[in-house]
Nucleic acid binder design. Structure first.
Lengths: 338, 338
DNA sequence: GGAAAAGATGAAAACGTTTTCGAGGGGAGG
DNA sequence: CCTCCCCTCGAAAACGTTTTCATCTTTTCC
């Protein structure tokens, strides 16, 4: 099928090993023959076989990306898409491919770790995981494969964080700065990034000495307008309604807005609301959502950088996690109270 | 590192070949030893090395996905994300991994075809390509690798289409049904899916005997609010304004809405507008955009089905392209004219 | 001029599989 | 008892590379 190194060597009148060395810039090959080999390779359209090469060298220039979403819809969440895009970009720049890894291959179900080993990826990025304490994910973290995680750190492994603490502090600061005191927070699933934000939320409220009524903090699901809807309903049923609701992400905020509208509430005149993420599309709509924009592109980029650095220097000292700041998007959905 | 088939064979007191055959369900191995091998494999945590296996069998159970976007942002377009998700789902179900392929690997730049050969993918899906006549893409289409395209067909290859013709006809039918006669169409880049929609647009207008003033049809870019903005400006500068503007996609429609708002025009009271795609997020916003929802998930699923079928039966007769219908989403942005 | 060093090349093993082919053994049939 | 065939199994080649080591040639240096 494809032209092999053997044919190339015949064409050049050289041995296979000489050709290989010429192609791989070994020092012990004369400039003249290297030139000749390179030229012939060009002519024949030769390129090495990644399988054979990987088999021999244990390097595949292939990065595994795991999206551990039981619903198979993590790609639908704009946050992860942007990360994936940044990751892919940096990987390409550095000469790596990326493969999305499943649990199922060739008919049988493999664990993530085994799947990664099976594919011989050089490293793994845990891009989206719903539960960082899932045994299968933990197994991955306990292996010796280079690994980078986003918004979570396993001991001994690299990680990149969105600055959730600063983000929540800034967002809440903005809300409080506009005079709100009764602020509710509908957060995402626990044991995830939501914990950090929730802590930051409580932190700020405490610092300012603002009371947090029963029922103002509740758990919902990410990326679900339905759950957001339900949660908002509960909030509105409270004896003392909040004046502003913080949602777990932009998409949920849309669900919240819909729920509020159904109750005849105008935004922001009657009630305020804010999101989290700041994805591209949300920025184009009216009313302009107040939200905290995470820099997903940069997060993905840094994750790839970290991972590749680890692959190429496995014993380099572990650095502090990268913390990527975002930026507050002041929209129109949080009103200034008199 | 990992446990190899040799160690497994030692453990079982069998030859390597016997073990391999036991694992691969060859008929010439007794049920007893097969049982023994499987059990030992389980105990040792054995799984084959994909590289070695692929090298020998020329099958990798790996699908290449090319996203040919010079801007590296096709993943940001919700249409392609949904397709990718459907594709990935079906691929996983059938035991295939997918790898995103670049032009750049290990320092040197490869053509798409070479990159696919290099990685030994079993087949390719051209998921997003801006120009189907790009020589590098054409080269791919002229190779003998199994190939499936979306919204375009190369002779001799499988393809899946979104029903662009029916979609545009239905959308425009809806608009005309609401009494509009001055309808403009800002379409995407030529030599792409836009051609079909444009033809359908012209077709319907002609059938109904409706005149199409100069400047009512213009080219813009996909997924760009900026270009949408410019295009709308031009439209508004015309001596006779359209009463309804069809945009090339939802995202562009948002740009169009913004531009119209800036001119103090209310939607839909003063002017109507419609999008195309019907992505999940757009469905949640106000005003509810009238648009045609493509079934990206299904398109991706079918593409994977087609591709895998072709891989597993290369000589099966070529079937007609799959045409996946969508559904009209009647929103609030197209007013009924008196 | 000779020995040592340096430079260039090639042979061969190895990576972990699959697959062909042949060998051995045992049972059935003549 | 011999032959033939079927059932299991193993030896070995092959897939396309890389890399070690040896070999051969040339240069260098005293």
């Amino acid at each position: 099928m494809s032209v092999t190194i053997r044919e190339l060597s015949k064409r050049c009148g050289l041995s296979v090993s000489a050709v290989s060395k010429a192609l791989n810039n070994y020092p012990d090959v004369s400039a003249a023959t290297r030139e000749r080999v390179l030229k012939a390779a060009q002519e024949l359209g030769y390129y090495p076989n990644a399988l054979a090469r990987g088999l021999k060298t244990n390097r595949t220039y292939n990065l595994g990306v795991v999206l551990d979403d039981e619903m198979h819809d993590s790609l639908m969440h704009t946050f992860f898409i942007v990360i994936l895009n940044g990751f892919r970009r940096e990987a390409e720049r550095r000469g790596y491919d990326i493969t999305l890894i499943n649990r199922n291959i060739g008919g049988q179900t493999l664990t993530y770790l085994n799947h990664c080993r099976y594919r011989n990826v050089d490293g793994i990025c845990l891009m989206c995981v719903v539960d960082f304490y899932n045994p299968e994910i933990v197994e991955l973290a306990q292996s010796d494969l280079p690994l980078v995680t986003i918004d979570h750190q396993y001991p001994g492994h690299d990680s990149v964080f969105s600055d959730n603490r600063a983000g929540m502090r800034e967002l809440l600061g903005h809300v409080l700065g506009r005079g709100h005191r009764r602020v509710a927070f509908i957060h995402g699933t626990p044991a995830s990034v939501t914990d950090v934000r929730l802590n930051a939320f409580r932190e700020v409220m405490e610092e300012r000495g603002i009371a947090l009524p029963e029922g103002y903090v509740m758990a919902s699901h990410y990326h679900s307008t339905r759950y957001a809807h339900e949660a908002v309903e509960k909030l509105l049923a409270l004896p003392e309604r909040p004046t502003c609701i913080l949602m777990t992400d932009d998409y949920s905020a849309l669900g919240g807005i819909a729920a509020l509208s159904e109750h005849g509430l105008r935004i922001p005149e009657d009630i305020s609301i804010a999101g989290y993420d700041g994805n591209a599309m949300i920025q184009k709509i009216r009313p302009n959502l107040t939200t905290y924009q995470q820099n997903g592109e940069e997060i993905g980029r840094r994750a790839a950088q970290r991972l590749i650095a680890r692959i190429e220097q496995p014993d380099a000292p572990l650095e502090e996690p990268d913390v990527v700041p975002g930026v507050l998007l002041t929209g129109e959905t949080v009103i200034r109270l008199a």
